[in-house]
Every structure is written in C-alpha cells, then in structure tokens.
C-alpha cells in the first residue's frame, strides 16, 4: 500500500503545532457550492524551503492557497501560520495572486501597486509618505523594475506585471510567501528574476509556497514539492517525492470515484 512506500511520513498532526512551522494545514476540506474540491489536506511546511505546489488543472492548487489565506472558507480543518491563526499573523504572510485576478487597465503606476503591499503598515487614513515610496521603489528595484516605476501598469508586459506583483509581496517583508502561478506566461528574463528572488528569500530563511505548472523546472527551482489532486498525493523533498509513480497518480486523471461522490454531495445539497 502506498502509505508504506512513501518516504518521510507526514508529521502526525494531533500534536502541538510547533511555532517554527511557517504554515501548517490540518485536516482541511474546502468545498465550492458544497462540492468538495480539496479533501482532508494535512501539511506542515518546513521552514526556509522553496516549496512547489504541483498538480493538474482543477486539482485545487489555487484553492489551497486561497483557503489558507481565508479568501475561500474551509468547510473544516484549520490553518496556522507560525502556530497562530492567520488573522494574527497577516504581517508575516506575503501573497502573490494570479496575474489575471485584477484589471490591469486600472489607473495606477507600478510604484502605486507595490506601495499597496505597505498599506498594512501605513494604517488607516494615513497617506503613502515619501518614506514608504522609497521602500516601494527599493522593492521594485529588487525585481529589476526600478526604471518602470512610473509607468501605468497596462503598459507593462506580462512578465513585468508579474514582477510588480512579486515586488508588492516583497515590500511586505513577510516571512512566508504564497504565490499563485508566478511563472505563468512570463518571459525568460522574468522567470530568471523570479527564481533569483526566490533563492534570495530562501537564503534569508524565508519560506515560499509556489503554485507551479511547469513540471520540467520543478527539480531545478524547488526544494520541496507538494503533489495535489483534490487530495494530497504526496509531499516532501523533491528528490524523494517527485517520482514518476507519484506524478502518474497526480496526473492520471482525477480519481473517478472521488469526483463522483463529490458530485453526489453537491446534488444532495449537503456535505456536512
């Protein structure tokens, strides 16, 4: 049975959550319109690692991140960042949403977008003062976009827009980053820049969970991988988990029965 062949069994989650664990998800089930899209996810992210979240389309990668951040309500289970609920740790968590999630025709400049990462620190009603603008500019410079600070965001290329989003998360100076498909549809230069930033973050002891779709680069870019297909297929160090058998399991179509039962739950109008 698979459980036995798996290396590095997952930590048993009944125990006390250690404060050092950047993100621990315990027994989380998420449902859209009562249909479960993620079942019983149990995962403790190791600190100081780059972690890829990998799985086929519709396997719940984005949902995992959104549920962890409370953007999608979880039907059951709990999520902790450094041992505490997210609401008390917002400052330590950086979020890079999918590029398509916003209207890039919005009348703001790249610098304005990056400054949004600082709003939490600035607080209610207080304007973005020069100090914060300098900070935002520094974050832009880290992704190699300082020259584009005053461009309106629709005039940036897809890769540049992605870098602006990354800079916004960097400006938060968080300890754990959740990124949703930062590599989707970007040019080679941006991909290199993002990887460099990720490695820099790791060297500072920070953790990044990145939804990733390019299987070929997983082993190059990441230390750990989390294979997902409605359920957690496997998780752990890349070299141990990223095996063809596990991949086949994750990508070999959705497990038909799982899907069918989920569908029945939706029709019945319930789950629990």
């Amino acid at each position: 049975m698979i459980t036995r062949t798996l290396p590095a069994p997952l930590p048993i989650s009944d125990q006390e959550h250690p404060g050092s664990c950047p993100l621990s998800i315990h027994d989380m089930t998420v449902a859209y319109h009562r249909r479960p899209v993620l079942w019983d996810i149990d995962y403790d992210a190791p600190p100081g690692k780059l972690i890829a979240i990998v799985g086929p389309n519709g396997s719940g990668k984005t949902t995992l991140i959104k549920a962890a951040l409370g953007l999608v309500p979880a039907a059951s289970g709990e999520v902790r960042f450094f041992g505490m609920r997210y609401a008390r740790q917002r400052g330590r968590v950086g979020y890079v949403p999918q590029r398509e999630s916003v209207d890039w025709d919005f009348p703001v400049s790249a610098l304005d977008v990056v400054a949004m990462g600082l709003y939490g620190r600035i607080g209610w009603c207080w304007p973005v003062t020069r100090r914060y603008q300098r900070e935002a500019l520094a974050a832009l410079a880290r992704v190699g976009m300082a020259d584009y600070a005053h461009r309106q965001i629709s005039q940036l290329s897809g890769g540049q827009q992605q870098r602006v989003f990354l800079a916004r998360a960097l400006a938060q100076s968080a300890d754990v980053y959740l990124m949703d498909e930062p590599f989707a549809g970007v040019d080679a230069a941006t991909e290199r820049a993002i990887v460099e930033i990720l490695r820099e973050l790791r060297s500072q002891g920070k953790t990044a969970l990145v939804v990733h779709h390019d299987l070929q680069t997983v082993t190059d870019y990441f230390d750990e991988v989390l294979l997902l297909n409605m359920r957690l297929i496997a998780a752990g160090p890349v070299e141990q988990v990223f095996t063809s058998e596990n991949l086949r399991k994750a990508y070999g179509g959705k497990l038909a029965l799982l899907d069918e039962v989920g569908h029945k739950m939706r029709l019945a109008g319930g789950g629990q």
Partner: peptide, 12 residues
C-alpha cells in the same frame, strides 16, 4: 490511494 495516516480516514 492517498498517504493518509489511519486516524484521518474515519472523518472523510
């Protein structure tokens, strides 16, 4: 099919 510890099977 899944690497779940035995105590996690029941709830689902």
């Amino acid at each position: 099919h899944f690497p779940l510890p035995p105590d996690h099977l029941h709830a689902s």
